[in-house]
Design a protein around this nucleic acid. Structure first.
Length: 114
DNA sequence: ATAGTGACTGGAA
DNA sequence: CTTCCAGCCACTA
């Protein structure tokens, strides 16, 4: 199971209406500073595939997209449709919408997929 | 084996 | 509260 596959598995486990940051996702996978690698993995997903990539945002609670305005718009629309709220600065209140799975939960999930 | 490429991040200025 | 910068990590050619 590659790092990317683990990323996808965990992203698929994020509940509707909740979000995870790139860094938090990397930490759950045991790679404390792999935030960038997570971004790389998500960048390679199909916009309409089975990976809810839109539920991953940056540590500031904002949407990060470089040269992909359309997808950034889609991400925002999907999150709003799920009930996630953006403030006037286009930031999500992480304290309120962050998904915080217990470590054993994430570990068990990944082991089930091996 | 190696260099280039980012949907990142935390700290410094 | 803002840029700016240097690590960091997996993937690809």
């Amino acid at each position: 199971m590659t790092f990317n596959q683990q990323v996808y598995a965990l992203v698929r486990a994020i509940p509707v209406g909740r979000v995870l940051t790139y860094g938090a996702l990397a930490r759950l996978l045991g790679v404390p500073r792999g935030a960038r690698a997570v971004g790389w993995a998500l960048r390679a997903t199909e916009p309409d595939g089975d990976v809810p990539w839109h539920r991953v945002i940056n540590a500031q609670g904002a949407i990060v997209v470089k040269d992909r305005l359309h997808e950034a718009h889609v991400q925002r629309e999907r999150l709003i449709a799920e009930g996630v709220i953006f403030d006037v600065h286009e930031h999500v209140d992480l304290e309120r919408f962050r998904w915080q799975p217990a470590e054993f939960e994430a570990r068990a999930l990944l082991e089930n997929l091996i």
